[in-house]
Design a protein around this nucleic acid. Structure first.
Lengths: 211, 211
DNA sequence: TGATATTACGAGCAGTTGCTCGTATTTTTA
DNA sequence: TAAAAATACGAGCAACTGCTCGTAATATCA
């Protein structure tokens, strides 16, 4: 039905030259720009190719279709986020004061999101296919798992399902505040950031406390 | 340039028969469905007409274009929201305990959003034109102004700009939590609702308190 | 009853979309 | 070197987009 029944979604794995890898990178850069500007649905593959200085035919030698471009782009974002925050999340979750914990967890994420506006745009875009929504999963799970782990350290008395609810609510709160953070100018950013942290601090203080 | 230079965006105001009003209503119902299913960008006017059991030509006798359909739909949502919540917002904002205030304000909004899933979808859709984004303004301002007014009653000591920041943060928090609320089953809803209110309660308790 | 305005239809237009394919160039392999 | 593979191009296709327009049915008004 979908083409490859034997090897699932695996590609024939043709040999890539250095030139090809570079082209893929350029195409993803262009895709990030076009997706961020027009949204997924209105972004045309021809426009992406043109923005990368390539022809449509070239684009389709590296990607099977529009959806695969977005998936590859999302995968690249996830890899970068993981690299940038792997260290930031490794904190002594139990001992640190809550305010310091929030600083350590949030500051790198805010910096990443502001440096990669396409990431947030693509994550929040509802005009995407279910398959692409699946590709967002790792990005979401990455944050969720680490937050849940930190909460497990800080509040070992909390039942697992309550803990997961707290993590989910905290993440959704932050996602809701992200548009404010993204839209803020460099001058407004400290104020908005402080208020966002205050909101999360207030919630987590009561959600994680004993009894 | 855009046609009517004298009467701005006003339509020639042709006489509508009862039949016509009914058709417009049916077309907006169909549009709500199609927008909610495919998003604004991928929703085709032909599909909207078909979903309403009408021809494309009929659709364009009542609306000048796709954008105007979305604007009219949004206006209808705003009117309904206003009707449903006008009373709910008129509370003695200063005297009521914060938890009760949240109940009175949030419960009707949650009920409305769950009853009209297309509203939330259209509001959150980034694939819309700037003109349509303008049409969302009344819906957002409606909530913001009322919340800001309530806060002014409750915390008269708070400077206006701090109060507006608090209102904006509260709204964004709630918007972030809305996807959880929308996705929750009838069984999960009370738990999710309680947690959302707890989060807002925790934040507002510190943001609105004196000094 | 006409006369006029409103509602209704749907084939089809100009433009765009995602994508293909024949062909040409460049790089690696032998 | 010559053959094979990878990269590159861009005209153009089938499908779809928002939308038009000639025409016909239905309702209101005289």
């Amino acid at each position: 039905m979908t083409g490859d029944t034997a090897s699932d979604t695996a590609k024939p794995a043709r040999k890539r030259q250095a030139r090809g890898e570079k082209r893929m990178h350029e195409l993803l850069d262009a895709a990030a720009e076009v997706f961020a500007t027009h949204g997924y649905a209105k972004a045309s593959t021809n426009a992406i190719a043109a923005a990368a200085g390539a022809s449509p035919g070239t684009l389709y030698q590296f990607f099977r279709g529009k959806q695969e471009i977005a998936e590859a782009l999302m995968a690249r974002y996830v890899a970068r986020l993981d690299a940038a925050h792997g260290a930031a999340f490794v904190v002594d979750g139990a001992a640190l004061p809550l305010a310091d914990l929030l600083d350590r967890v949030l500051d790198p994420i805010i910096a990443f999101d502001r440096a990669n506006p396409g990431f947030h745009t693509l994550l929040a875009d509802p005009g995407i296919t279910p398959e692409l929504a699946q590709a967002k999963r790792p990005a979401q799970d990455l944050i969720f798992q680490r937050l849940d782990g930190i909460f497990a350290d800080r509040a070992p008395h909390l039942p697992a399902d309550e803990r997961r609810l707290t993590a989910a609510v905290a993440i959704h709160m932050f996602r809701g505040l992200l548009p404010m953070i993204m839209a803020a100018s460099e001058r407004e950013l400290p104020t908005v950031t402080r208020e966002a942290k205050q909101a999360l601090h207030a919630y987590l203080a009561v959600a994680l406390k004993e009894s």
